[in-house]
């Protein structure tokens, strides 16, 4: 099987993730979109590592995972603190400054 198919798949997943971020209204779903983008990146990195026959891409994927985990920690903390204040996790409700 052509390895480049995996690159195409990664691009599709990345696009789906980006679309999710831009179109969905629930903060958790938006956040999942970001995670999908990061995981699509991992797929691309691992595929390219295979194509090039070196390990750099696989190591990079681990770094991306660690960073994604750190982002989850901070991001969920912020989303939860907003939710506790407003009882809503909708992106549209967070608009005090649009006056």
């Amino acid at each position: 099987m052509e390895l480049t198919n995996y690159v195409v798949l990664a691009t599709i997943l990345f696009t789906i993730g980006a679309t999710t971020v831009l179109l969905r209204r629930n903060a958790i779903i938006v956040f999942m979109g970001v995670e999908l983008m990061l995981n699509a990146t991992n797929l691309a990195l691992v595929t390219f590592a295979r194509i090039h026959g070196d390990l750099t891409g696989q190591v990079l994927a681990f770094f991306v995972m660690v960073v994604a985990a750190a982002e989850v920690v901070v991001g969920l903390a912020i989303i939860v603190s907003i939710f506790r204040t407003r009882r809503s996790a909708s992106v549209d409700d967070v608009n005090l400054m649009k006056s």
């Binding site: 990345f14 993730g17 983008m37 990061l38 699509a40 990146t41 691309a44 891409g57 990079l60």
Partner: peptide, 10 residues
């Protein structure tokens, strides 16, 4: 940063 890291992958 997701855009950035996908760019790095490319």
């Amino acid at each position: 940063s997701a855009l950035f890291v996908f760019g790095v992958a490319l």
